[in-house]
Design a protein around this nucleic acid. Structure first.
Lengths: 130, 130
DNA sequence: ATATTTGCAAATAATTTGCACGTAA
DNA sequence: TTACGTGCAAATTATTTGCAAATAT
């Protein structure tokens, strides 16, 4: 009963390899362009479907850009962590989940990352809803 | 030279009043629907343009939903702060920016918010880009 | 009077879907 | 062989834009 079979196909390998080669959030369109540039013939819809597939499998993280475009990063969450994103080149560094006042400093020391902005959101249930 | 004149119009007052009445991130479409329901005749494009206007003025914060749809909250950042978002009703509470390990507990005590998930992102310049 | 804002309809842009064909198992 | 994946073109959905008419100043 049930577990769905899963095929290893060329498009899937291509897309995964493109994600694997760069520590950056990439949009579906960017992935598609790089694939073309590398001589890999994949359709944009396959890129979308493969990304959905990877999301479901848990091998990828998404992030909505401020303009609403979705971007994807190869990221199997070994441990719960967050991301430091370079606003110039987009490079992503993993940051473990322990937040303090000296966070920026330690980040700078440990990762060479100079943090000048951060955002966070908390989700749960408010007093009225309990 | 130059400060642009700014008109106070009914659509703008309407949209602001709708945002003001609820501590929740609302999409342009939701705002538009509520306006109609309240007998306010505004076009959806005006909703979008007014939201852009409020964003530029700094009276509103945006947040992209996971599906990419943009949502808006009346939020003039008196001090730098973050948001606690109820995942059941969407209610937003302000949270001042000091993050510790006992964060969830203090949030629960101070705001009645039961946090079971959070996300954060850091932006800056990575080692390679300096 | 005139600069600014609005409504409407059409244009964009990202993403999704239906379906016939291709392919891994 | 057959369930699963892909390509293509068309459909959806959120958002933006051009322009003539309305409105705040």
């Amino acid at each position: 009963m049930g577990a769905r079979a899963e095929y290893v196909t060329r498009p899937r390998e291509w897309i995964t390899s493109i994600l694997a080669r760069e520590p950056r959030f990439l949009s579906a369109a960017q992935i598609h362009e790089r694939a073309k540039r590398l001589g890999m013939r994949v359709s944009l819809s396959t890129v979308y479907r493969t990304l959905d597939h990877l999301l479901a499998k848990g091998g990828v993280t998404t992030r909505a850009q401020s303009d609403g475009e979705a971007t994807y990063l190869l990221c199997a969450p070994a441990q719960h962590h967050h991301h430091a994103i370079c606003r110039r080149c987009g490079r992503v560094d993993d940051v473990d989940c322990s937040v303090t006042d000296q966070f920026a400093q330690s980040l700078r020391a440990r990762h060479g990352f100079n943090i000048d902005e951060h955002a966070m959101e908390f989700f749960g249930t408010c007093g009225d809803c309990r």
